[in-house]
């Protein structure tokens, strides 16, 4: 599988990243060697093998659906880069 600039740009877009040309070259080369390493997985016969998804296979314990206020609004807003008394604020990004 070829790791080219086009694929890197696509992955940047999906990852919401915008790499510098320098980082892009580094990561492109690294991905090549990492993929070379992980391609080894294709050697393993996984015909009729289920994927392992959940490590803890215990039966789920249900709890009553009760309302509780775990995070008061003031605390929730305390780390906001921008906020008013009630809401997170973001810059205007749409031109309506």
């Amino acid at each position: 599988m070829e790791i080219n600039e086009e694929l890197i740009l696509k992955l940047e877009k999906l990852s919401r990243l915008n790499l510098s040309q320098e980082d892009r070259t580094v990561i492109k080369d690294d991905l090549k060697s990492i993929l070379n390493m992980i391609d080894k997985l294709q050697e393993v016969d996984t015909e009729n093998v289920e994927p392992l998804i959940y490590l803890n296979q215990e039966k789920y314990e249900w709890r009553p659906d009760e309302v509780s206020n775990e995070l008061p609004r003031r605390d929730a807003l305390k780390n906001a880069p921008a906020a008013n008394e009630e809401y997170f604020s973001v810059p205007k990004v749409l031109n309506i």
Binding site: L7, L11, E12, S15, R16, L17, D23, I27, L31
Partner: peptide, 18 residues
């Protein structure tokens, strides 16, 4: 995100996205 994450984190996010 580009300003906030370091190179190793970017590398792993890119690989994971792939």
């Amino acid at each position: 995100r580009t300003e906030g994450f370091g190179l190793e984190v970017k590398r792993r996010i890119m690989l994971g996205t792939f």
